[in-house]
Amino acid sequence: MAMTRRQRTRAVRTVQYAVLAAVLLAIVLAADWGELRRAFFDAGVARSLLPDILTTALLNTVVYTLLGFGFGLVAGLVLALMRLSQVPPYRWLSVAYIEFFRGVPALLVFIALGFGVPLAFQVALDRYVTVMLALGLVGAAYMAETIRAGIRAVPKGQMEAARSLGMSHGRAMVSIIIPQAFRIVLPPLTNELILLTKDSSLVYLLGLSLDQYELSKFGRDALNQHRSLTPILVAGLCYLLITVPLGQLVRWLEARTAKAR
């Protein structure tokens, strides 16, 4: 029997909702809710995490991330400029760096830095410096590619106008091209910041003292102590406290960029 177009649309829609409902129902029925509540929603454990999870762990996560982001941004800009250089060895070095640090898990970089640098140079680096280096070195590889794309997205006429006014290439880059490039890459750079926030959970590999714990390490420590999964849930919520507003910021920046075009 032939269906009208409207009937067919309605039938397809009904099937889609039915599938969704069936999957949700299956999950709800299969899960042991009592067990889950005991493990994840222990109010006593949650209360015992406060205020340290905010004043120490959340704060440390933010500080580590910002240190890494700041260093990574500067290093990323240098790498991007090297990548666009007229001097071939600079380009090769930049490409090699980006390919290496983008292709190797951050976990390995952290271990190598945490144990390798003190071994090689017989120095005990300050914890914050090591964190900044480790997160920054990894972040720089991604940010370099983003910044390079931004520089190339600035119209060619901008460089020509700057040069025709007598600016040197370098002066034109600093005063005209790079400020515009950063405007263009502000949304993707904010995304890098979100990724870095989560990568900061690898800092534990460097070996941390109690007051240096960031969210993930803090959560896992409390997990062992309380024999409850509640700290993991709370730590997760704390990450969202940082990343969701940043995500909103990205969306707002993108909308603003779209309007300016």
């Binding site: 119209p155 006429g157 901008q158 020509e160 106008a161 400020p179 515009q180 405007r183």
Partner: peptide
Amino acid sequence: VFQAFNLFPH
């Protein structure tokens, strides 16, 4: 002076 102006938009 250019056809496309090329003013610095920032």
